[in-house]
């Protein structure tokens, strides 16, 4: 059995350039976690079903278990560790929108991108985006409240 070849990748993550040696077959999720110590993105299914590993690649939420690290060279990656006091984080805390917290980084990254991309999101858009992630602890009602509050705040902000 052949060992898969490794190579050095230089990735742009949370505004920093980070060099890492990884197998070419390695997913972004594993490179972030094992190679770079960014364990905020969580493995939940490695199959794109649960969304716990969601990060932003050029502002688009991506399930990092479904993307090869090598594909992200030259792109801007934002992980939960790169969010700086975002309104959605405050809203999640205020509305008890998590319990065990394991799905939370993925949910927050997805919701953050939604708010940035679609400040005017209607019910359907919110659902289309957020049904990508599974939360097993909350009833989703708390998450819905948090996201809608952050969206409303964004709308006010963008009007000025």
């Amino acid at each position: 059995m052949e060992e898969t070849t490794k190579r050095e990748l230089v990735l742009s993550i949370n505004g920093e350039r980070r060099a890492v040696v990884a197998r070419q077959a390695e997913t972004l999720l594993f490179v972030l976690r094992d190679g770079l110590g960014l364990t905020g993105a969580k493995p939940g299914c490695l199959n794109g079903d649960c969304g716990a590993c969601t990060v932003l690649v050029n502002g688009t939420p991506i399930k990092s278990c479904m993307m090869l690290a090598i594909e992200t060279v030259g792109k801007e990656i934002t992980t939960i560790e790169g969010l700086d006091d975002a309104p959605i984080q405050h809203a999640f805390v205020r509305h008890f929108a998590f319990q065990c917290g394991y799905c939370t980084p993925g949910f927050i990254m997805n919701a953050h991108a939604l708010i940035e991309r679609h400040p005017d999101a209607d019910e359907t858009t919110i659902q289309e985006w957020l049904e990508a992630n599974i939360c097993r602890c909350t009833s989703y009602q708390e998450i819905e409240t948090a996201v809608k509050e952050a969206l409303a705040a964004k709308k006010v902000e963008t009007k000025f």
Binding site: L130, E131, N133, S139
Partner: peptide, 16 residues
């Protein structure tokens, strides 16, 4: 797998 065994997702929740 969570694709074939499918827990409730956002938007499928009722009012509590």
């Amino acid at each position: 797998q969570l694709r074939t065994y499918r827990p409730i997702r956002f938007g499928e929740h009722p009012e509590y």
